[in-house]
Deep mutational scan, measured.
Amino acid sequence: MEQATVKWFNAEKGFGFIERENGDDVFVHFSAIQGDGFKSLDEGQAVTFDVEEGQRGPQAANVQKA
């Protein structure tokens, strides 16, 4: 698992990007966020996640709020 920071997340559209420590951004979809209830992330929030290869490149999976 990697630890990184949420760059931005649009709760209405259900997706955003996580900024990795190496500077690369990773796409995150609300369905990858672990937990119950409304799944959203806040800008600047610390998260841990795995990286999977998606249809359009790397994307976050198993996202957990740190």
Rank of each mutant, 00 (worst) to 15 (best):
4 A>H: 05
33 I>E: 03
39 K>S: 06
44 G>M: 04
62 N>K: 08
35 G>D: 08
61 A>E: 05
3 Q>W: 15
55 Q>F: 14
40 S>P: 02
56 R>V: 06
29 H>F: 09
56 R>P: 07
37 G>F: 07
59 Q>D: 02
33 I>N: 01
59 Q>Y: 13
4 A>I: 01
44 G>N: 07
41 L>F: 05
65 K>C: 10
8 W>S: 02
15 F>M: 05
36 D>F: 12
5 T>W: 14
14 G>R: 01
3 Q>M: 13
9 F>V: 00
25 D>C: 14
50 D>N: 15
38 F>T: 07
18 I>Q: 03
20 R>P: 03
27 F>R: 01
22 N>T: 10
62 N>Q: 05
51 V>L: 12
13 K>E: 03
58 P>D: 05
3 Q>D: 06
53 E>L: 14
35 G>T: 09
45 Q>D: 13
46 A>H: 14
40 S>H: 11
7 K>F: 06
39 K>R: 12
43 E>A: 15
7 K>E: 01
10 N>A: 06
23 G>C: 07
29 H>I: 05
45 Q>Y: 05
12 E>L: 14
34 Q>F: 10
48 T>C: 11
17 F>Q: 00
9 F>M: 01
14 G>W: 04
40 S>K: 11
65 K>A: 11
36 D>I: 12
63 V>R: 02
3 Q>S: 12
64 Q>I: 12
25 D>P: 08
5 T>F: 14
18 I>K: 01
47 V>N: 03
52 E>N: 08
2 E>N: 12
11 A>F: 09
37 G>I: 06
30 F>A: 05
39 K>E: 06
60 A>C: 03
19 E>C: 15
45 Q>C: 09
45 Q>P: 01
5 T>M: 10
19 E>Q: 15
27 F>N: 00
29 H>W: 07
52 E>Q: 12
40 S>C: 15
4 A>L: 03
49 F>I: 05
30 F>P: 00
38 F>S: 06
27 F>Q: 03
35 G>S: 09
33 I>S: 02
26 V>M: 08
53 E>F: 14
53 E>C: 14
38 F>L: 08
53 E>S: 10
19 E>F: 13
65 K>G: 08
46 A>R: 14
44 G>W: 05
62 N>H: 09
54 G>R: 08
62 N>I: 05
60 A>Q: 01
31 S>Q: 05
43 E>V: 15
56 R>Q: 09
27 F>L: 02
28 V>F: 14
24 D>L: 12
25 D>S: 11
30 F>K: 06
13 K>V: 08
31 S>K: 07
33 I>Q: 02
12 E>P: 05
42 D>P: 07
1 M>V: 11
49 F>R: 02
5 T>V: 13
43 E>Y: 13
21 E>F: 11
5 T>E: 04
32 A>R: 05
14 G>F: 03
62 N>S: 06
5 T>C: 14
7 K>G: 02
30 F>G: 00
9 F>H: 00
61 A>V: 14
66 A>T: 12
49 F>L: 07
23 G>L: 08
32 A>G: 07
31 S>R: 09
15 F>K: 00
29 H>A: 05
3 Q>P: 08
48 T>K: 09
34 Q>W: 10
37 G>D: 06
52 E>H: 11
2 E>Q: 14
44 G>V: 03
24 D>I: 12
31 S>F: 06
37 G>V: 07
38 F>E: 07
2 E>P: 09
29 H>E: 03
46 A>C: 15
64 Q>M: 11
40 S>R: 11
47 V>P: 01
37 G>N: 06
3 Q>Y: 15
61 A>I: 13
64 Q>E: 09
15 F>V: 04
35 G>W: 10
6 V>L: 04
13 K>H: 08
50 D>I: 15
16 G>H: 02
21 E>R: 12
51 V>E: 04
5 T>R: 14
43 E>C: 14
17 F>E: 00
1 M>D: 08
8 W>D: 01
54 G>H: 08
39 K>M: 07
19 E>A: 15
26 V>T: 04
26 V>W: 04
61 A>F: 10
22 N>Q: 10
63 V>I: 06
62 N>T: 06
65 K>S: 09
36 D>M: 12
50 D>E: 14
27 F>H: 00
13 K>W: 11
53 E>V: 13
37 G>H: 07
62 N>L: 06
17 F>L: 05
41 L>K: 02
63 V>T: 03
49 F>Y: 08
58 P>F: 11
57 G>N: 03
37 G>K: 06
52 E>I: 15
48 T>I: 12
18 I>D: 01
23 G>R: 08
15 F>Q: 00
13 K>S: 07
1 M>R: 15
59 Q>A: 07
16 G>Y: 04
31 S>W: 08
64 Q>V: 12
13 K>R: 11
38 F>C: 11
20 R>V: 09
43 E>W: 13
33 I>G: 01
26 V>S: 00
33 I>M: 04
51 V>A: 05
52 E>G: 08
8 W>P: 01
6 V>S: 02
58 P>W: 11
61 A>T: 12
9 F>C: 05
27 F>A: 00
44 G>L: 03
28 V>N: 02
62 N>Y: 07
17 F>A: 00
29 H>R: 05
45 Q>W: 09
30 F>H: 07
58 P>N: 07
44 G>D: 04
19 E>M: 15
18 I>F: 05
27 F>S: 00
46 A>V: 14
32 A>L: 01
45 Q>S: 08
40 S>I: 11
24 D>C: 12
5 T>S: 08
3 Q>R: 15
41 L>S: 02
40 S>T: 14
42 D>C: 15
58 P>I: 10
45 Q>F: 05
27 F>K: 01
54 G>M: 07
8 W>A: 01
11 A>P: 12
1 M>N: 11
14 G>K: 01
65 K>I: 13
10 N>I: 05
49 F>D: 00
39 K>D: 04
60 A>P: 01
7 K>Q: 02
1 M>Q: 14
29 H>C: 08
28 V>M: 06
18 I>R: 01
22 N>A: 09
41 L>P: 03
62 N>V: 04
11 A>T: 12
56 R>G: 09
44 G>S: 05
19 E>P: 02
48 T>E: 07
57 G>L: 04
64 Q>Y: 10
65 K>H: 09
61 A>Q: 09
32 A>W: 04
28 V>P: 01
34 Q>L: 13
42 D>T: 15
51 V>Y: 09
50 D>L: 13
32 A>V: 07
14 G>C: 07
18 I>W: 04
11 A>W: 11
27 F>P: 00
44 G>I: 03
40 S>G: 08
51 V>H: 05
24 D>R: 13
45 Q>M: 11
48 T>G: 04
65 K>P: 11
18 I>E: 00
10 N>E: 02
39 K>G: 05
19 E>G: 11
32 A>M: 05
8 W>G: 02
3 Q>I: 14
6 V>H: 01
42 D>N: 13
29 H>L: 05
23 G>E: 08
37 G>L: 06
35 G>F: 09
38 F>Y: 11
10 N>R: 06
34 Q>E: 09
37 G>T: 06
36 D>E: 13
36 D>K: 13
